[in-house]
């Protein structure tokens, strides 16, 4: 343990860092941790969208992004053609919700392994850790990059939706009310991106084989999402005293999946659009805790994962 600390201290001072890996001599200026993390994050963000790689690597990110934008585009066309000024897609739930979840799921399953599994597979981690970065820097840079990638996927369609609506309204007060409706949508989208990216990377980082990494990410998100919806539906009609009151099962089933937990949190925080889960009512705070727990489990698990990853 003490050897590890001195090694890290030495690394921070620039001593004990292997620069010459027997490949190419270099005696110019050396940049520090911050620049390394920045470069690593920027590279990971690009690889999340297949930029800098072949056309085959771009199929899934481009396809998912286009499908995610579809409701916003449909909204813009509908407003422009019919001349109405009422937005047809809400900012906070971005209906159809199943579309957002499905598209995000495919993106996570296909691209999270791109970000972390390739480094594991090609055994380059020892090279990264021979540089003056600390253990936590690598997963943090990867996480930041993948959260940014999910933000692009989630927030850009919202902005398209906003622009498509605002260009059709006439009065300034209408623009202001659109803007006020957009802000919670953007904040909620950020929560989606953070939770999805953290959990996606955690599951992807367990396997160096891309196939298994894809499989485990998809199984986790798809299984929990289906189970949560199904138990909600069963709880609504097979439990409870009356038809009007959703039973405790219907109110609690959403805690199983990160996506339904996010939706429950939205309703707890005051969201009124109908979502995939019913209003959690008195259980609302549980949904806030669940989202926080998913986020901490994902990010914390990722940090722990890279504390003991093989460097030999």
């Amino acid at each position: 343990m003490s050897a590890e600390i001195t090694a890290a201290g030495a690394a921070a001072n620039g001593a004990g860092v292997i620069h010459d890996i027997g490949y190419q001599a270099y005696d110019g200026p050396r940049l520090g941790r911050a620049q390394i993390m920045l470069a690593l994050g920027w590279h990971s963000l690009k690889s999340a969208f297949g930029i800098g790689r072949g056309a085959k690597a771009k199929i899934v990110p481009v396809f998912t992004f286009a499908v995610m934008c579809a409701p916003a585009v449909v909204n813009a066309i509908q407003l422009a053609v019919t001349g109405t000024h009422t937005r047809v897609v809400p900012y906070d739930t971005y209906r159809p919700v199943a579309l957002r979840v499905l598209v995000l799921l495919i993106f996570l399953a296909a691209q999270a392994p791109e970000v972390v599994s390739r480094d594991l597979r090609s055994h380059v981690l020892p090279l990264y850790f021979a540089r003056p970065i600390r253990r936590a820097d690598y997963p943090l840079a990867k996480l930041a990059a993948f959260v940014a990638a999910c933000l692009v996927l989630i927030e850009v369609p919202l902005l398209v939706l906003y622009v498509g609506t605002v260009t059709q309204v006439r009065t300034g007060s209408a623009v202001w009310s659109e803007t006020r409706a957009l802000i919670p949508g953007l904040l909620l989208g950020a929560a989606w991106a953070a939770v999805a990216a953290a959990l996606g990377l955690l599951f992807a980082s367990f396997s160096s084989r891309r196939a298994y990494a894809t499989g485990s990410v998809a199984i986790f998100f798809f299984l929990t999402w289906t189970l949560a919806l199904l138990l909600t539906s069963i709880g609504e009609h097979a439990f409870g005293p009356g038809l009007q009151q959703p039973s405790a099962l219907a109110r609690l089933a959403g805690l199983i999946s990160p996506f339904t937990a996010l939706d429950g949190m939205r309703q707890w925080l005051g969201g009124t659009s109908p979502g995939p889960v019913p209003d959690p009512g008195g259980y609302g705070a549980l949904y806030g805790i669940a989202v926080l727990a998913f986020l901490l489990a994902g990010a914390g698990g990722l940090l722990l994962r890279y504390r003991k990853v093989g460097v030999a």
């Binding site: 798809f222 299984l223 289906t226 189970l227 199904l230 539906s233 069963i234 009609h237 097979a238 439990f239």
Partner: peptide, 20 residues
């Protein structure tokens, strides 16, 4: 153990079993 209604088995076993 807990459900009051007998209609859930086909829904749960059909959907969860056959789509997941």
């Amino acid at each position: 153990a807990t459900a009051h209604s007998p209609v859930w088995p086909p829904e749960f076993l059909g959907v969860f079993g056959f789509t997941v």
